[in-house]
């Protein structure tokens, strides 16, 4: 046995256990789910093959369509509001001032709190007789008091705002780590050349921060596309279908409507969407990354 063949055998020996685990718990179920996506199946009776019907149905199901719109709103909000805000906070937290350590902790603290616990608390705060409306009433703005999670107009915007409570701090910490990894001599050299303020940020800080931007954008987009827990816990997708997300629509198809074949088709389409969007984003941002 030549050296190369021995190396192959050793490599296979090391890879086999991991492959077996992946095959049993990931690849095989995935292949099975592809099969189920072409069937009508309630999880109990034998599946009945119905061709592409489940995939066609995805495009005229109000829950999926509303879920898609809401998911896209979340993506756009994440890109245009959450991301710049996190960057701004990171830049501010990177400066030297007395309460810096406290503020860094305060911004990161929401990340370590269970979303279920946070949802229960926010649910109480936002209900009609909750804290927010109490505050509005106290300052004479009771005309603006609404059931924030119980109206079609405000249910999903409320969820978007709540999601930022955790997301902004998390993204800000990634940006902060990126800012601290930029060598100080880069700034010193730029300052000697006369760069100040926004010019310094645009031509030095931001290009050097691109790896962090790539990661944050990836997390923001993927996080938005797979948003499930907040609408599931706070509104169940309602009122009507106003706060559905794609992920919740898939979940409810399976576990509320017992339509597991259709839900599987939705899950596969969602996975494809996430891969495409995330791949596109990575391709764009990776090109702009600067290597030292």
């Amino acid at each position: 046995m030549g050296l190369q063949r021995k190396q192959y055998a050793t490599a296979i020996g090391f890879l086999a256990p991991a492959f077996a685990i992946f095959f049993v718990f990931f690849y095989f179920p995935f292949l099975q789910s592809v099969y189920y996506s072409f069937t009508e199946w309630n999880g109990l009776s034998a599946p009945r093959i119905i061709g592409l019907d489940n995939y066609k149905r995805l495009f005229d199901d109000p829950r999926m369509i509303d879920g898609l719109y809401n998911t896209l709103k979340m993506v756009v909000f994440g890109l245009l509001i959450q991301n710049p805000l996190a960057l701004l906070i990171a830049v501010l937290l990177n400066r030297k001032f007395r309460t810096r350590a406290f503020l860094r902790t305060a911004f990161y603290l929401p990340v370590i709190i269970s979303l279920v616990v946070a949802s229960v608390i926010f649910g109480q705060i936002l209900r009609y007789d909750g804290f927010v409306n109490g505050l509005l009433t106290a300052v004479g703005l009771d005309a603006f008091a609404v059931d924030w999670l119980g109206t079609v107009k405000f249910s999903f915007p409320s969820i978007i705002v709540l999601s930022q409570w955790q997301a902004i701090g998390y993204c800000a910490m990634i940006y902060l780590a990126g800012l601290q990894s930029i060598p100080p001599d880069m700034f010193e050299a730029a300052e000697i050349e006369g760069a100040r303020g926004f010019v310094l940020f645009r031509h030095i800080t931001f290009p050097m921060l691109m790896p962090a931007v790539s990661i944050v954008l990836f997390l923001t987009i993927v996080g938005a596309l797979r948003l499930f827990d907040l609408p599931y816990l706070l509104t169940g997708g309602g009122p009507g279908t106003s706060s559905y997300t794609l992920f919740l629509a898939v979940y409810n198809s399976a576990f509320v409507n017992q339509n597991f074949g259709y839900a599987t088709a939705g899950g596969i389409m969602l996975a494809v969407l996430i891969i495409l969007v995330a791949g596109l984003q990575m391709a764009i941002t990776r090109k702009r990354e600067v290597e030292l």
Partner: peptide, 18 residues
């Protein structure tokens, strides 16, 4: 079940004020 869920969704929408 899917049709019944749609009816329930229609009711919650109405009760929300739409």
């Amino acid at each position: 079940a899917s049709a019944h869920t749609s009816l329930v969704e229609a009711v919650t929408k109405v009760v929300s004020g739409v």
